[in-house]
Amino acid sequence: MDLLAYESAKKIWRQITKESTVPELEFELEVHKKLLNIFQVGDYYYYIFNCLEAQIEYVHENVTSVLGYRPEDFTVANVLARMHPEDLPWFLNFENAVTEFFTQLPPDKILKYKVRYDYRLRKADGEYLRILQQVVTIQADGAGGVLRTLGVHTDISHLKPEGKPVLSFIGLDGEPSYIDVNVKSIFTSEKGILSKREKEILSLLIEGNHSSQIGEKLYISQHTVNTHRKNMLAKTGAASTSELVAKAVREGWL
């Protein structure tokens, strides 16, 4: 899934560049650090992303204190691999929406929007943090292709311990903002990997039925029901049936 997600993300990011070429990084990083005054920062680190190459070209050493990883290990592939599996489809759908938004903007508006959304990342010690990702374009071509962006990752776990990720486009210099944007569900979550029978069993579990009751209602053995339940736990990464049910209700898998 991580490799497929990376390839999908690269295709999305290539679109936002409008197939342009990216010149060498000739600007002074210190100048663009001033852009950080538009971000609300707590425990944070920042980075520069090359959209066409789908590569992180620079990341601040604070990434070690926040996530526990060395700067050289903070690559796109590693970020996707350490993203919470429930949030990975949100991330891809958000990036697709971001590309659609920016490709429709006039070239003179490209630098006037900040993209903001959240997701969970796994630290080196295995704990998940909820990261607020805020990104602005710092380099674009004359046709409006986004070439490089400056991003800030802030730990907001204490502010948002749970809930679905939210995407917003924040207008700068008087431009309008778009909060909690609805996005197309091109990439699906765990609900897409559950079979029809598993969804039937999950629905009955949510209603409070036990395995024996589910077996009677679906005309299958209790052993078969239990096998499906174990498979659903393995597929979704849930540690227990109660966690599986809670995730299904919270994320809208049915």
Rank of each mutant, 00 (worst) to 15 (best):
E200N: 13
E190L: 10
I179E: 12
E127W: 10
G163S: 07
K199W: 02
S189P: 01
L147H: 02
V135L: 11
Q134K: 12
H153N: 12
L147V: 03
G144Y: 05
G145W: 01
I206G: 08
V166W: 01
V135P: 06
D155E: 05
V152Y: 00
K191Y: 14
S203T: 13
K199D: 05
D180T: 09
T154L: 04
L204M: 15
S189E: 07
A143E: 15
G144C: 10
I170L: 13
G174M: 04
E162P: 00
S195V: 05
D155Y: 07
Y178I: 05
T154N: 00
T154G: 04
Q139P: 00
E190G: 13
G126L: 12
I206C: 09
G151L: 05
D173T: 07
H158C: 08
V166E: 03
P161R: 10
R130F: 01
V183H: 11
H158A: 14
E190R: 12
L167R: 04
E162G: 08
K196F: 12
V135F: 04
I193Y: 02
L205K: 08
L172W: 01
G174A: 08
P161A: 08
G151S: 13
E162F: 14
V166G: 06
L194A: 08
V136D: 01
E190F: 15
L194F: 08
L167H: 08
I138S: 05
R148P: 04
I193M: 03
G126M: 11
G174C: 00
L147P: 00
G163F: 01
N182I: 12
Y178V: 05
A140E: 07
V181D: 02
A143N: 14
D180H: 10
I170T: 04
S168M: 09
I170Q: 07
K191W: 13
R148H: 10
E162H: 13
K191E: 14
I186M: 10
E127V: 15
T188Q: 15
E162N: 12
G151Y: 02
K184H: 12
L150C: 05
Q133S: 13
S195M: 02
K199H: 12
H158T: 15
G145L: 01
D141H: 02
I179C: 08
S203V: 03
